[in-house]
């Protein structure tokens, strides 16, 4: 097996090492840096003020580890993997999710030649910040509108997964507009990713919805403590499942 083959096996979420020319990789580092700094600050605060939420944080991080290691075959003959960062985004917001994403991306860049150190900034932005931000806002909007909690979590996680690769396509199209220009390049990249990712996004949404149900059943007091669910909603959800 030639070495180039190994480098190209993998997922679409992460831009590979060396595939972002200067100045783009530096730009994405600068864009992601403030989110990581705020995320570390929020983590510190969480550890000091809401210690009981730490196991939930571990679950959110572990979930990214599991889901981003599962390369699933999609419908068009290629493979990709879900991100799992939607859960962290819903539970803790995009800044803490960015820190969780960073840990996984460093692991994959160093040990698996997935993504890369120079493209870390861009990859943290798409998987750790943009996706979880979508999940966070959909969840907030959904609960405020009084929508079904599990349906909201499903949409939040599935759309976070989809939005991650939309951002990846934007990042690649900005760096490689080619002769087609930005929009032409964007649709070319998005076309490769879209077909692969839509079924996986649905699976990811479903799995995260299930995990959320178990959190509601086992430790609902953390969810109310983090202002994610009101106590009346928790009672209603638990009664429905009983």
């Amino acid at each position: 097996m030639p070495p180039t083959r190994l480098q190209s096996i993998g997922d679409i979420m992460h831009i590979m090492e060396g595939f972002l020319p200067s100045p783009w990789w530096e730009i994405w580092f600068f864009v992601s840096l403030p989110f990581i700094v705020i995320g570390l600050y929020q983590l510190n605060k969480l550890v000091q003020e809401k210690r009981e939420a730490l196991p939930l944080l571990a679950v959110a991080g572990a979930f990214v580890f599991v889901l981003s290691s599962l390369k699933l075959p999609s419908f068009n003959g290629s493979c990709s993997h879900p991100t799992g960062t939607g859960l962290g985004g819903v539970l803790f917001g995009p800044c803490i999710a960015a820190v969780l994403g960073l840990i996984v991306l460093i692991f994959q860049a160093v040990f698996l030649a997935h993504g890369g150190i120079t493209t870390l900034g861009a990859n943290v932005f798409s998987m750790g910040i943009a996706g979880p931000a979508v999940a966070y806002f959909i969840y907030k909007a959904g609960t405020r509108a009084g929508a079904n909690t599990y349906a909201t979590v499903f949409c939040a996680a599935a759309l976070a997964d989809l939005f991650t690769y939309v951002v990846t396509s934007v990042q690649l199209a900005l760096a490689f507009p080619g002769t087609a220009g930005f929009l032409g390049a964007f649709s070319a990249f998005a076309a490769i990713f879209a077909v692969t990712q839509v079924p996986l996004a649905i699976i990811e949404g479903a799995v995260i919805m299930l995990v959320f149900k178990y959190i509601v059943q086992l430790k609902p007091e953390i969810l109310t403590r983090l202002n994610l669910l009101s106590e009346s909603t928790v009672t209603k959800l638990r009664e429905a499942a009983a």
């Binding site: 993998g10 590979m16 990249f189």
Partner: peptide, 24 residues
């Protein structure tokens, strides 16, 4: 079949004559 979709994206980029400036 069933390779990574990022391989396809990389192919698209390399077809334009770009060579990655660093590797893992």
């Amino acid at each position: 079949a069933w390779g990574g979709a990022d391989g396809e994206a990389a192919g698209l980029i390399e077809a334009s004559g770009y060579e990655p400036w660093t590797g893992p």
